[in-house]
């Protein structure tokens, strides 16, 4: 039987949650025995090669590309897991949600105290994904099956969750592993 496949992505996140995945230490060797990695920054596979059992989502959606990637994950993965506070509630990027987008861009590219921008242009190339009006948690864009809170979630949380799902057991985390920070 072919090993189940796991895909991961970092949307509007800082890659800290991916660091936490790597932080399972030598258990990563066990994980490789249990699963194959499909699309993921870990192996740099850019496109889905087929159906995946689990998709791990780091980060919320701050631009249109994030939305497309997230929808792609939903289409290819049986189980989608929001990993970390950014996927769950927007996290640090969502601090801009109480400020109009134009004000954010003006501050970043025109008015900020360290800005050098003689042409007074705000980047608007079609190669650059369009920013959304605000940062959206993953579950406000697609259906998410499980949530692993934390900033980042501890490696043990990710390990417990993955091994439970792979062995078909219900996902119940001990009190000490549910943390929002």
């Amino acid at each position: 039987m072919a090993k189940p496949k796991v895909a991961t992505t970092s949307l509007a996140g800082c890659f800290g949650c991916h660091m936490s995945i790597l932080d399972i230490d030598d258990r990563i060797l066990k994980l490789i025995e249990l699963v194959d990695f499909d699309k993921s920054p870990v192996n740099d596979i850019k496109k889905f090669t087929g159906r995946c059992l689990v998709g791990l989502i780091e980060g919320g959606c701050c631009n249109e590309e994030n939305v497309r990637v997230l929808q792609d994950f939903r289409a290819h993965c049986d189980i989608l897991i929001s990993v970390g506070d950014c996927a769950i509630m927007g996290g640090i990027p969502a601090m801009r949600n109480t400020i109009p987008l134009k004000e954010c861009l003006d501050e970043a590219y025109l008015n900020g105290p360290t800005v050098y921008n003689p042409t007074k242009t705000i980047p608007n190339d079609e190669e650059i994904p369009l920013l959304l009006n605000r940062v959206y948690p993953a579950h406000e864009v697609v259906t998410i099956d499980y949530f692993l809170p934390g900033c980042p979630p501890p490696a043990d949380t990710i390990w417990e969750a993955l091994t439970a799902l792979l062995s078909g057991k219900p996902l119940t985390l001990p009190y000490q592993l549910i943390k929002y920070d």
């Binding site: 996290g91 579950h139 900033c151």
Partner: peptide, 27 residues
């Protein structure tokens, strides 16, 4: 706007503690 990740009260916050006690993973 409850950004637990940088809140100084995190870990000693009663709102957060109740969410932990109830096992709330996401609202």
């Amino acid at each position: 706007n409850h950004f637990c990740m940088f809140c100084e009260k995190s870990g000693n916050c009663e709102l957060q503690a109740l969410a932990y006690r109830f096992g709330i993973m996401a609202p």
